[in-house]
């Protein structure tokens, strides 16, 4: 883990962080993944209309820090049957761009393709991810992750792993 200066995250550091986050999710390393988040975290997977207000329209996932914790606790019980046994996952993150800053957060966009294998078959997931990254105590942390699936307007199969 590389310590970083407060200002000016460079693309290389950002990419390394995104790959690490992806690996923790792929490998169901729930503790390491949870530790990446800031206290004001928001983990959002919209349904249907990307532009809809998530407070007045349902989303696939709209987790604050508290609900991220609940989701992970449920996974850790081993009786979250939709992830027990866990899916075999590998994702590729690409087209990483620094889009700008919001306060002290760096806004990053990327595309991803993810292959999920389960007993009942293989699923391909793909979409656009928007991250907001913040340097806290010399380390990059994740304040916001929005996953906009290419097929978010279509019926989706169960999505019980960390996307």
């Amino acid at each position: 883990m590389t310590a970083v200066a407060d200002a000016g995250l460079d693309l290389r550091q950002i990419e390394q962080f995104l790959y690490r986050e992806a690996r923790y999710a792929d490998e169901h390393d729930y503790d390491a993944w949870e530790a990446l988040w800031t206290d004001d975290a928001l983990y959002w997977v919209p349904a249907g209309d990307d532009a809809a207000d998530p407070r007045s329209q349902v989303s696939v996932i709209y987790d604050n820090r508290n609900r991220i914790a609940t989701r992970l606790k449920q996974l850790r019980t081993g009786k979250r049957y939709s992830q027990s046994p866990p899916s075999n996952l590998r994702r590729v993150i690409s087209n990483v761009e620094i889009l700008g800053t919001e306060g002290s957060d760096t806004v990053v966009g990327a595309n991803f393709v993810l292959v999920e294998s389960r007993t009942r078959g293989m699923e391909i997931w793909a979409g656009r991810v928007t991250y907001k990254l913040r340097v806290v105590d010399g380390e990059i942390r994740l304040a916001y992750k929005k996953v906009s699936l290419v097929n978010k307007d279509q019926p989706l199969p169960t999505l019980a792993f960390l996307i």
């Binding site: 997977v45 349904a47 696939v60 996932i61 609900r67 609940t70 979250r80 939709s82 019980a160």
Partner: peptide
């Protein structure tokens, strides 16, 4: 509802 139902719901996925 977002927490409970739909593809990622903590009830309905199971």
């Amino acid at each position: 509802s977002i927490g409970s139902v739909g593809p990622a719901g903590m009830l309905l996925a199971d």
